[in-house]
Simulated assay, not measured.
Amino acid sequence: MDVQSALFISFVLAAATMCVTPGPDMLYVMSYGVSQGRAGGVAAAAGVAAGMLVHAVLSAFGVALLISQYPWLMMIFKGIGICYLVYLGLSIIRDKSDMAVDAKRAQRSYARIAYKAMMVNLMNPKVVVFYVAFLPQFTSPSGWPVPAQLFTLGVVFVTLGFAADATVGLASGALGKKFAENGTLTRKVNVSCGIVMFLLAAVLLLDI
């Protein structure tokens, strides 16, 4: 297995773990799935994905420009990324919030739901930090041009995120009730995902 393949597999594992971890976007999608039905949940998931795609484009070309001018920045980004993985692991494990949803939302058009979900994602500073700190550490100087690598990774992450969120939107009626009634289940999911983040941080640290 070459370096590029190993990096891509590591990225897919990390991205998939993040996408299935309960968080603000998933809660947002779930709330609309419960109150507006399957179509409302999928519309919210599409809006979140649209916001993530905008972040991916900005990150790919902005970060790539900096790295092309200052190659040593790659090591700094990798270091930040490792710290960010550790931070994510700690945050996920320490998160004791439940998956409660608000089922009292007024009926809204699906386009409006998607637009609002996109704006919520775009205005989240943590998403910007994620793309700037996380994606560059999975690029290789010997592969495609850095902008192409970052954009490809961004699209893969958006696709995985939409798949996870849309699934939650479709199944939110039953899934939302189950998590709301079983706090232990949410804790088990969080702890498991947090441990995966720590392991990925350790692997990436050895690669520096």
Score class of each variant (00 low, 15 high):
residue 153 L to F: 02
residue 86 V to E: 03
residue 114 A to V: 00
residue 171 A to L: 15
residue 158 V to K: 06
residue 182 N to V: 05
residue 134 F to L: 10
residue 78 K to T: 14
residue 159 T to I: 11
residue 143 G to N: 01
residue 80 I to M: 15
residue 127 V to M: 10
residue 160 L to G: 08
residue 110 Y to Q: 12
residue 118 M to W: 04
residue 179 F to G: 08
residue 105 R to M: 07
residue 77 F to Q: 00
residue 160 L to V: 06
residue 152 T to D: 00
residue 104 K to Q: 14
residue 170 L to E: 00
residue 113 I to G: 06
residue 97 S to A: 12
residue 98 D to L: 02
residue 68 S to C: 09
residue 65 L to T: 13
residue 119 M to T: 15
residue 124 N to D: 12
residue 77 F to H: 11
residue 175 L to Y: 11
residue 95 D to A: 11
residue 144 W to D: 02
residue 165 D to H: 14
residue 91 S to V: 02
residue 124 N to Y: 03
residue 119 M to F: 14
residue 79 G to F: 06
residue 78 K to W: 09
residue 62 G to T: 09
residue 98 D to Q: 03
residue 75 M to G: 15
residue 179 F to Y: 14
residue 95 D to L: 01
residue 111 A to Y: 13
residue 158 V to H: 01
residue 133 A to I: 02
residue 113 I to K: 03
residue 106 A to K: 09
residue 108 R to D: 05
residue 155 V to S: 11
residue 165 D to K: 09
residue 85 L to V: 08
residue 65 L to Y: 04
residue 181 E to A: 13
residue 58 L to T: 11
residue 181 E to L: 07
residue 74 M to L: 15
residue 130 F to V: 04
residue 169 G to L: 07
residue 62 G to E: 01
residue 109 S to C: 09
residue 94 R to G: 02
residue 135 L to M: 12
residue 142 S to L: 13
residue 57 V to F: 13
residue 170 L to I: 14
residue 173 G to N: 00
residue 113 I to P: 04
residue 103 A to P: 00
residue 58 L to I: 15
residue 72 W to K: 07
residue 149 Q to Y: 00
residue 109 S to R: 11
